[in-house]
C-alpha cells in the first residue's frame, strides 16, 4: 500500500486537516483581539487573559472540573480494573457481562443523563458535586474495562501458573504478576476516563444542580448569551492543555503497545 500519493490526494488531505483545525485556530487568534468580537481583528491584546485570570468564579469552576475529572478517573480506574480481572476469570457468561459493560459506551449521552437524573431523584441524592462525580465514575468505568481487558487476554496464562507453582499467594499473583503486566492498559484507561470527564457536557447538564457547574456547562451558558472573547482566551488555554493530554496518551499507547483508538465518546 506504499504507492505514491497523488497530488490531488495530498490536496484533499490538506483541505480536510485545514478545515478540522480552522475553528480552533480561529478561536485562538481572536483571543488576542482587542476588538471585542470574533469579526474584524483590530489589535493585539492580552486583556482577555487578564480578565480570565481575575475571574475567581471561573477559576473555581476550572478547579471543580479538574477535581471531578481526577477523582472520577481514579475511582473508575480502580473499579474498572477489578471488573476487567473479574471478567477475565469468568468461565460462563463472559459475553453477557461484556455486553452490559458496553451499554453505556454506545448509549447516547442524553439517555445516560436523563436516566441518571431519574436515578438520583429516586435515591434522594441532591443534584450537585456528588451526583456529577457519581455519573462521571459511572460512564468512565466501561472504557477502563475495554482498555484493560485486551491486556489481560494477551497475557500468557502460564505466567500465573508458574507464579502459583512457585508458591505465590492469590494476592501475590495479583500484585506481582497481573497488575505489572496490565499497567499500560490501566494508565490508558485512566487517561481515557480523564478526558471523558473533562469533555462531558450532556450527562453533566442533566445531573448538575443550580449550585454546581463544570467548564462545559459554563461555556454553554456563556455561549448562549453570545460572543465574549474571554471564552476564546479560555479555549486557547484548554487547547494547549488538550495537546499535553494527547501527548501523554500517545506516549502511553506507544510504550504499552495499545492501538491508537482513543477518541472521545
Amino acid at each position: 500500500m506504499q504507492a505514491k500519493v497523488s497530488p490531488a490526494a495530498k490536496i484533499f488531505l490538506m483541505v480536510v486537516i485545514l478545515i478540522l483545525y480552522a475553528p480552533i485556530f480561529y478561536l485562538v487568534i481572536y483571543s488576542f483581539n482587542s476588538g471585542g468580537s470574533m469579526s474584524g481583528f483590530e489589535g493585539f491584546t492580552l486583556d482577555w487573559y487578564r480578565e480570565l485570570l481575575g475571574d475567581t468564579r471561573l477559576l473555581i469552576i476550572v478547579l471543580n472540573t479538574l477535581v471531578i475529572a481526577l477523582l472520577s478517573a481514579l475511582f473508575a480506574t480502580i473499579f474498572g480494573t477489578l471488573g476487567a480481572i473479574w471478567i477475565y476469570n469468568l468461565r460462563r457468561g463472559k459475553n453477557t457481562i461484556i455486553g452490559l459493560n458496553n451499554v453505556l459506551m454506545v448509549s447516547p449521552d442524553v439517555i445516560i443523563g436523563a436516566s441518571f437524573l431519574i436515578l438520583f431523584t429516586i435515591a434522594g441524592i441532591r443534584l450537585g458535586f456528588y451526583s456529577v462525580l457519581l455519573s462521571h465514575i459511572a460512564f468512565s468505568i466501561p472504557i477502563v474495562v475495554l482498555m484493560v481487558l485486551p491486556k489481560l487476554s494477551e497475557m500468557n496464562p502460564t505466567l500465573i501458573d508458574a507464579a502459583k507453582d512457585l508458591g505465590a499467594t492469590r494476592w501475590g499473583v495479583l500484585t506481582k504478576v497481573i497488575i505489572p503486566y496490565i499497567t499500560p492498559g490501566i494508565f490508558a484507561g485512566f487517561f481515557m476516563a480523564l478526558t471523558y470527564s473533562l469533555d462531558d457536557f450532556a450527562v453533566t447538564f442533566f445531573v448538575t444542580g443550580n449550585g454546581f457547574s463544570t467548564l462545559s456547562i459554563e461555556i454553554y451558558s456563556m455561549a448562549r448569551q453570545g460572543i465574549s472573547l474571554h471564552i476564546n482566551a479560555l479555549s486557547t488555554l484548554l487547547f494547549f492543555f488538550t495537546l499535553i493530554l494527547v501527548g501523554i496518551y500517545y506516549i502511553i499507547s506507544q510504550r504499552g503497545g495499545i492501538r491508537l483508538g482513543g477518541l472521545r465518546r
Binding site: 480536510v16 475553528p23 480552533i24 470574533m38 462545559s216 455561549a223 471564552i231 479555549s235 487547547f239
Partner: peptide, 21 residues
C-alpha cells in the same frame, strides 16, 4: 494523530467557534 487531535478538543468550544465563524 493530527486528524484525531481536534476530536479531543472540548465539544462546546468547537460549537462556540462556529457561532463566531
Amino acid at each position: 494523530l493530527l486528524i484525531i487531535v481536534p476530536s479531543w478538543v472540548n465539544l462546546l468550544l468547537k460549537a462556540y467557534a462556529f457561532i463566531g465563524i
